[in-house]
Design a binder for these strands. Structure first.
Lengths: 226, 226
DNA sequence: TTTTTCATGTGACTTTGTTCACAATATTAT
DNA sequence: ATAATATTGTGAACAAAGTCACATGAAAAA
């Protein structure tokens, strides 16, 4: 926990921009800011959810225990909400969130958050937009996952990291091969094979977890055709 | 289009229950009720979205064109909203909705719907709850799809139809084998083989599209272990 | 009714991806 | 630094599911 001023926070959600000065005071006395180190659990599947989590800085994976393995559902980059879904659906967290790097999270009391939705139409609207975009993303992901083969999915994942998360063709992949396989729905061995194949074909350059995309065109092609 | 009174409608969304008499008047003059026959397209992917669709009666599939095939994302039973996602995210429908049986849909002007969200906190809150539940469903589905094998997925689908859609162990499966494969992410042949295998093992009884679940216990077991 | 079209079932074969085993690196803890 | 632990790469055997081909059956159109 840390002294802070929400009103002057430079990293504010679209929804929060619609809050009044009085709302900010309420927010400030009902929100805490917490730092997480890489690997620390922010939200735990099965735990009671009493807060909405807003990711202020850092990178987080959203994951869920499946019948066989852990499944990584999403990589979220700040700024973004993490646990709205859980707050309004069920009382228990239906998924976990774990920091992939040093991360700052603001926990906002669910009741306060709900109050803002009730009394501030713009706030509610922004939250709805975020939820809708999430769902569209889930739909697209679902289509890819069930129709593309592993090379296509690996290509898609690399492109997503490059374009959406790091905005750079060279980046340090924030997941282990095993986690990457949990995300794509395959095995660590298959990921390994595909990556070395891409590397042999000079599509990417590999140095451990550091990846450079050398031939983006071809990677896009592999991603699209599946 | 049909003369109707929204206020007295027996099939009302949770959100709509929070509307005032004046709101109902606005709603009535900005909503139309349309009947669809089996196979007719209610929402078309790529078309401009100017309405929120509320499914008043019937059964609908939500589907999306993928890189290889059509993907069926969801089967929706009335009463439920169909196109909220599209209204608030992007201007174009990101998916299609097609009637699986005779179906009644109320189309509500998006702007009116947005207005309700702005000025009615309870309405907004109910919509948010629905969106959150959708996302949790998507997450669970995604986990199943990437971790279960085909028999497990078929079992899950049959149980879902029986428990969530028809509330009966005997039902007429509303999709062709081909559509079922688009939903699960496999091929018509594989579906066929799994179904005859279930039938041989006396887990289900098959007569064309009519399916009876004979051994629910075992089906649950197959679904859970993958 | 008859024809045409679409949906389904099934066998043989091919492809893709998994599993298992083990070696080689990294990383972390002592 | 050194040991212990986790991560990664790779080959070989195996299993699951996809593809292709064709026969049968059911529904829609002529």
């Amino acid at each position: 926990m840390k002294k802070h001023s929400c009103k002057d926070c430079l990293i504010m959600s679209e929804a929060a921009k619609s809050l009044s000065p009085e709302d900010f005071e309420i927010l400030e006395s009902n929100a805490v800011q917490v730092l997480f180190k890489k690997g620390e659990v922010i939200l735990k599947q099965g735990a009671i959810s009493t807060n909405v989590a807003f990711l202020k800085s850092g990178l987080v994976k959203i994951h869920m225990q499946g019948p066989v393995n852990e499944k990584i559902l999403r990589i979220i980059k700040a700024p973004s909400y993490l646990g709205i879904t859980t707050t309004f659906g069920v009382k228990l967290n239906q998924f976990s969130a774990t920091a992939l790097e040093a991360t700052t999270v603001c926990f906002i009391d669910s009741n306060i958050f709900r109050e803002f939705i009730y009394k501030n139409g713009k706030f509610a609207h922004e939250i709805i937009i975020e939820l809708c975009n999430n769902e569209l993303y889930d739909y697209q992901k679902s289509v890819s996952l069930s129709q593309k083969q592993i090379p296509g999915l690996v290509a898609e994942t690399l492109l997503c990291m490059s374009d959406k998360i790091f905005n750079n063709d060279k980046f340090c992949f924030p997941l282990t091969r095993n986690e990457m396989s949990d995300m794509i729905g395959t095995t660590r061995e298959s990921i390994s094979r595909v990556l070395t194949e891409f590397s042999n074909d000079k599509i990417i350059e590999l140095h451990g977890s550091e990846i450079s995309i050398l031939n983006k065109e071809l990677l896009i092609q592999i991603s699209e055709k599946g």
